[in-house]
Design a protein around this nucleic acid. Structure first.
Lengths: 256, 256
DNA sequence: CGAGGACTTGAGCCAGTTCAACTCATGTGG
DNA sequence: CCACATGAGTTGAACTGGCTCAAGTCCTCG
């Protein structure tokens, strides 16, 4: 079992090396301040970090695991409006209450900053606030991609898109060794997938089984899918030749 | 016909009085700079302001009319990922290309700033960048509301929600006189409504006709709907007692 | 006046939901 | 250590909300 000082070390390590949006690439004075304020917190799957309409006590980065931002309608229907993976920021600065509920979709490790203190840093270091602005813009873009997904893609397309996103965002470990099989690790339950993709667990199950029957992928177990035919998965996603694994050349120019 | 200097005057007027997010409530030095850089542009319905994957030459505020942000899939399906109404900002700073297409859904008047110049202002005035950050957060929240809409509401609920949003955002003029009928002016075509709400023009037509049959509203003409039974419209929206026209008391506490 | 676009209406169909049953894997208490 | 409950995932069958296609009206504009 780790003691607090170990955890703290891990935190700084992570924040320094993993590219937390808050810590990465900022001047060393800011980095020192961030490290001084950071606290590591761990939650187990299902725990609520910030409830809907509740005070936002802290903000921060996901170090490991997955957070879900979700909203619940009066009649109980739930929709996940965003998944936060390692290096993503969670929480909302300059807002007293959260309009979404932030929950652990898996066991998570978070690098947290007291919200008021973090806002203080933003005021003192415009450079940091600038970086935050950029990362919120990226989150907005992700939300808009999600709107496309829900607004005009079939369930099969949504699932294919989701698998490609997960693969792109998953740590290098699973894809690194060049000869290794192309295995996607689905980090969340079917139930969360359904709430994220605006469908049902049954439809997800059926679609994935169908992809397996068609030889697009192989089901190792429900969370581990080996991509057998990337091209076909890409076609199924409806986004065709775009996005993932692009010709390396001109890409840097096009990404903000 | 207006000449350029008139337009310029109108621009300053609008930016000063209408509460452009960029101009409103900032220090007078910044305001002077903004006014110096602002240029009014007008577009007629259907014109493309910034194309998908194109350079973003300028950013700014909507003064009048409605802009749509939309994305087109390879096979031609289109989805509107956001509508921009008067006082909303359009364009994306610190990004060389736009990932959405920005088009005039109606005739529009825009208060524009050269993007590079505006970015210069942001760097010089952190206060302005701060305001921009807040407004992007609001846009993110709007996008997340849109995700709820598409992810777990029926077509009828989406339309009811849309009408309530339009009513809330429409200028006081239509609701002001206390005795006046409660008429919502739908500012966009059925086609755009469909692309925004993730449905078809036929379904929209049917739903609105059904609401009229049920006495929830009266169809004056396709763009003008008189709300006859606000409570029922609210129920149809599936968001129940929430959001618009709330009991005035505790509300201020809950809105960020 | 004719063409074209916006909106409405009808009829049939289908993707995806709902409901229900079943298989596993995991965990709990006697 | 087993009996049992519980939850995640899968599968089948029936149903339905909303889509598609087609035809119609009305309005605007050249």
């Amino acid at each position: 079992m780790l003691v607090y000082s170990d955890i703290q070390t891990i935190a700084l390590d992570h924040c320094a090396s993993l590219g937390c949006s808050a810590c990465h690439g900022v001047a060393s004075e800011i980095k020192r301040e961030l490290q001084r304020l950071s606290r590591i917190k761990r939650y187990s799957a299902g725990e609520v970090i910030v409830g809907e309409q509740e005070e936002i006590p802290f903000v921060g980065n996901v170090v490991s695991g997955v957070l879900r931002m979700q909203m619940t309608m009066l009649d109980g229907r739930q929709q996940i409006v965003g998944l936060l993976m390692p290096s993503d920021m969670f929480g909302r600065v300059f807002a007293s209450v959260s309009h979404v509920s932030i929950e652990a979709a898996t066991p998570v490790t978070l690098c947290c900053y007291n919200r008021a203190s973090f806002e203080g840093l933003l005021a003192r270091f415009p450079e940091l606030e600038h970086k935050l602005l950029i990362s919120i813009q990226d989150e907005l873009r992700a939300a808009q991609d999600c709107i496309i997904l829900l607004g005009c893609q079939s369930v099969m397309e949504r699932i294919a898109t989701f698998l490609l996103i997960v693969r792109r965002r998953s740590p290098a470990s699973s894809r690194s060794a060049s000869g290794t099989a192309d295995v996607v690790t689905v980090p969340i339950s079917r139930r969360d997938m359904a709430a994220y993709l605006g469908t049902t667990v049954e439809s997800i199950s059926r679609s994935i089984q169908e992809m397996a029957r068609d030889g697009v992928l192989r089901i190792i177990d429900p969370q581990h899918l080996e991509i057998l035919d990337e091209r076909r998965l890409l076609l199924l996603s409806g986004r065709g030749e775009a996005e993932p694994d692009m010709p390396p050349a001109d890409r840097q120019l096009r990404i903000a």
